[in-house]
Simulated assay, not measured.
Amino acid sequence: MNDQQEPAFSQRETQPAAAAPSHPQDADAARPRRPGWLLKTATCLVYAAMLAWSVHSARPSSLPDIAALAVASAAGLAVVPLVALAFLSLWKRFRTPRNRLRIALAAGLFLMFAVAPEIARRNDEKIQRDVANAEIRKTADALRLMLGGAHATPDAASSIDPTPKATGPYGEMERALKTVARERLAQHKAYVQELKEIGLPRLFDAHRLARDAGLIESRLILEQAERLVPTYRKQSMQVLTQMPARIRALPIDEQEKANLLDSLAASNAAGSANLTRVWDLEGQILREFGQMITLLDDNRQFWYADHDELMFGRDDDLRRFRQHQDAVSRMVGEQDQLGRQPLPGVLRSSLR
C-alpha cells in the first residue's frame, strides 16, 4: 500500500515574503526630496543681492578694494547660515537637502531684513562723516587762501556757503563749522576794508610821506588803526566764547553734543591763547609802524622820495628802518601761522 506522503515545507518556505513596493511612486517618496529650482533661485538671489549691496554701500575706490571687500563680505554672509545649519542639523528632519536650503534662505532673509538696515545706517553714517570731513578740509583750505597775509584783502566776491553737503548729525556739524568760517572771513574782510579806508596800506607810500608835512596824517592813520583793534579783537574772541551755545543748539543726539563739548573744553584754552597772541601781535605791528614814523619824523631832512622808494641819506637811519621792517615781517609771519588757523579744532577733531 502506497502511502502518499505530504510534501514537506521548509521553514524558509513558511516565512512570509518581504513586501515589495506596490508602486514606483512609493520608492520616490522614501528618498529625501531635493530642493526645487524656485528655492534655489530665491536663495541665490538673496545672497547675491546682499553681497552686491555690501560692496556698493562701502563705495570702494579701486578694483583691488572691490575684490577684497567682496571676499570679506562673502565670508561674513556665510557665518550666519553656517551657524544655523550646524545647530539645526542636530535634528534629523532638518538634514535633508531641501530643508538645509530652506534654512539658508531663512538665514539670508533674516540678514536682509533684520541686520541689513542697521548695517546700512552705519555705512551711511560713515559716508556722511567722510563727506563732512572732506567739506571741512575744503572750507579750511579755501579760508586760508582767502585770508592770505595778515593784511591781505580778500576778493570782494569771496564767500563761504554754509549749506552742508553731508546729511544728519555730521551735516549739522559741517553747517556749524562753515558758519564759523564764514563769520571769520566776514570779520577779516571788514577789518581789512576799514584799514584800507583809513589809509593804512599806503602808510609808507613814498610820495604820500613826502607830502605829509610833519607826518601828521601818518600819525592819524595809526591812531585810527589802533582804535579798530579792540573792536575786532572782541568780535573774533566771541567766535570761541559762543561755540558752546552753538553746539547746544545743534539738532543732534545729546551724546554727540556731550562729545563736542568735551572736545571744545580740551581745545578752547589753546585756541583762545592763539587768538589772543594774534591780536597782541597786531598791536605790536602798529606800534612798530609808529616807531618807523617817528624815525622818519625825527630825521626828516635825511630822507626823500625817489619814485616809489624812500631814500636815506645816512646809513644808520636806513639800518634802523630796516630793523623795524624785519621785526614787522617776523610778527606778520607769526600771525600767518596762528591767525590762518581760523577754524576751531573742536568740530574738526570730533568728526570721527
Rank of each mutant, 00 (worst) to 15 (best):
E13D: 07
E13V: 01
E13G: 00
E13M: 07
P16Q: 07
A17D: 12
A19E: 14
A19L: 15
A20G: 03
A20L: 14
A20T: 08
P21H: 04
S22L: 13
S22H: 08
H23V: 10
Q25C: 06
Q25T: 12
D26Q: 14
D26G: 05
A27K: 08
A27W: 08
A27R: 13
A27F: 06
D28H: 14
D28I: 12
R33W: 13
R33K: 14
R34V: 14
P35C: 06
G36K: 06
L39D: 09
K40T: 06
T41S: 15
T41C: 13
A42N: 08
T43C: 14
T43E: 06
C44H: 13
L45E: 05
L45W: 11
L45I: 14
V46S: 10
V46K: 06
Y47R: 11
A48W: 05
M50Y: 03
L51Y: 08
V55M: 02
V55Q: 03
A58K: 05
P60I: 00
S62T: 13
S62H: 01
S62K: 02
L63N: 00
D65S: 12
D65R: 02
A67R: 10
A68D: 13
A68N: 06
A68E: 13
L69G: 03
A70Y: 02
A70S: 12
V71F: 14
A72E: 11
S73R: 04
A74F: 10
A74W: 09
A75E: 10
G76N: 12
L77Q: 03
V80W: 10
P81E: 03
A84Q: 00
A84N: 05
L85E: 01
A86C: 02
F87S: 04
W91E: 00
W91T: 00
R93A: 09
F94H: 02
R95Y: 01
T96A: 08
T96G: 11
P97A: 15
P97N: 14
R98W: 02
R98C: 00
R98N: 09
N99L: 07
R100L: 13
R100Q: 15
L101C: 11
R102D: 10
R102A: 13
A106L: 09
A106R: 03
A106K: 05
G108K: 06
G108E: 03
L109G: 08
F110L: 14
M112I: 09
M112K: 05
F113G: 08
A114M: 06
A114R: 00
V115I: 14
E118H: 09
I119C: 09
